[in-house]
Amino acid sequence: MTALGLAILTLGAVFLALGGLGLWRMPDTYTRIQAGTKATTLGTLLSMAGAGVLEPGWALKLALIVLFLMFTNPLSSQVLARAAHRARVPQAPQTVADALAEAEGEGAQ
């Protein structure tokens, strides 16, 4: 049981590290937000699951932490993405389309 819990915990920590790597490697703000949010959410989910296997008595509180995080983390990412778009943060050169900018342009005219 201990080995299983530790394995899940380590997997979660690896995903957190991948999130950090995504933050570091991605070319522009939007892709960084994406990498950061997804990897850290799953990483935290797995870490909490591992900790819950190691200490079954804490499981309820750990589940609550995950629940709160799954709700607040995408929300803050969305606010950040919206802010980045409104503040006209430059997008990566590989970007192929921007429907939101087109829609705003139509609305302004």
């Binding site: 920590a13 950090g20 990412s77 950040l80």
Partner: peptide, 28 residues
């Protein structure tokens, strides 16, 4: 890695994203 992104920037919003990542990692 997230702290390096905070250090580097370049835009302020990149630093905010790094801040977000750091808080979530701190929970674990």
């Amino acid at each position: 890695l997230a702290a390096l992104r905070f250090l580097r920037g370049p835009h302020v919003l990149d630093r905010v994203v790094a801040f977000d990542g750091l808080t979530v990692i701190s929970i674990s």
